[in-house]
Amino acid sequence: MSSDLLPPAAVQMCFENLNGSCVKTPYSPGPRVILYAVFGFGAVLTVFGNLLVMISILHFRQLHTPTNFLIASLACADFLVGVTVMPFSTVRSVESCWYFGESYCKFHSCFEGSFCYASIYHLGFISLDRYIAVTDPLVYPTRFTASMSGLCIAFSWLLSIIYSFSLLGTGANEAGLEDLVSALTCVGGCQIAVNQSWVLVNFLLFFIPTLVMIIVYSKIFLIAKQQARRIESMSNKTVRSADSYRDRVAKRERKAAKTLGIAVIAFLISWLPYFIDSVIDAFLGFITPTYIYEILVWIAYYNSAMNPLIYAFFYPWFRKAIKLIVTGSVLRENSSTIDLFSKCRF
């Protein structure tokens, strides 16, 4: 009742002196400070965490492997989310207004889509790489080379960028939604509508590599279980050195597959609710409340901060690399040849 009697002056606008400005519905001071802290922390963690991953892999020669190049490229996608997407989304989410211009609104959405798809296709190629490494660890180095890794990286980036910029840049996503877009358009808003056809394409581009990863990692863990049983059954027997070496290599590759499998699960948990909601929204007339949408978006964004934490938890060599970077030891001569695996248990 009281809200119906509020005078017009009580309504805040994103741009007070502009006609057609969006209505501003900011949080009260307490929640605003908390949200800025939470979102800002996520952006900082994303930027510096992934920067550490990229520096570690690119600086230390011992980490120059095809798999790690894929991981560094994946970290680059997450790093760019922290630089080009999260800071601007922080202001939009807390202030309920877009202050960065109509042009960057489009770029912001293009970056968001590009880096999301780049991440999932990198993860898809990493899962195939791990499958080869676990099933045949001795032949693996000749099958998945640096050149093959480069092709996977190029495909992931080109497909993601070309698709996202073509879809949103041409306005194809708004076809058939002209009335809705017109009604939602106001100065200080940044809402991107995607029609039913393209939202299904978006979901398929997410779901197909997701399904491939689930199948591949299921096979990896079945094979890993069989290998573990084989090693256990042979533990009390005299085995040839070749078999012993093969088992040690297989154990190392299984550890890497497990760690990267956790990264895949984290990605799916973060992004799947967002994609499911986008499909439901498109077919039910965009009924998702703004606060629900913001929650789903930020759960997805925070995935970009999770991978460095996963690597730090499971990889002793990454923790050692972080220490060397933070203390400035990487600036010393020949620091790139430091042995990161000494005294590291796999």
Rank of each mutant, 00 (worst) to 15 (best):
S2G: 11
D4L: 12
D4H: 12
L5Y: 13
C14H: 03
N17C: 07
V23Y: 02
V23E: 13
V33Y: 12
F39E: 01
F39A: 02
G40T: 09
A43E: 08
V44N: 10
M54I: 15
S56G: 06
I57E: 01
L58M: 15
L58S: 12
L58C: 04
F60T: 05
Q62H: 09
N68V: 05
F69C: 04
L74F: 15
C76V: 14
F88L: 07
S89T: 01
T90P: 03
E95V: 08
W98S: 01
Y99T: 00
K106N: 06
F107I: 05
S109W: 11
S109F: 10
S119C: 05
S127C: 04
R130G: 00
V134W: 06
D136N: 10
D136P: 07
D136Y: 08
D136C: 10
D136E: 13
Y140R: 03
Y140F: 13
T142N: 10
R143N: 05
T145Y: 05
A146E: 09
A146D: 13
M148V: 07
G150W: 02
L151I: 10
I153E: 03
I153V: 13
F155S: 07
S160M: 08
L168G: 03
G169R: 15
T170I: 11
A172C: 10
E178Y: 01
D179A: 12
V181S: 02
L184S: 07
V187D: 05
C190Y: 00
C190W: 00
Q191V: 14
Q191M: 07
Q191R: 10
A193K: 15
A193E: 12
A193V: 13
V194I: 15
S197P: 00
W198P: 05
W198A: 03
L200C: 14
L205I: 06
F206K: 07
F207V: 15
T210F: 08
T210I: 00
V212G: 05
I214N: 11
I214T: 14
S218P: 06
F221Y: 13
K225V: 04
Q226A: 15
E232Q: 11
K237A: 02
R240K: 15
A242W: 03
R248D: 15
V249F: 03
A250S: 14
R252E: 11
E253I: 06
A256F: 02
A256V: 10
A257S: 12
A257N: 12
T259G: 14
L260I: 09
I262V: 15
V264D: 05
L272M: 14
F275S: 01
I276L: 13
T288Q: 09
P289G: 12
L296S: 04
Y301M: 04
Y302T: 05
Y302W: 15
M306H: 13
N307A: 11
N307G: 03
Y315R: 10
F318D: 07
F318C: 07
L324A: 04
V326C: 09
S336T: 08
T337F: 07
I338P: 02
I338M: 08
L340W: 08
S342H: 02
F346A: 06
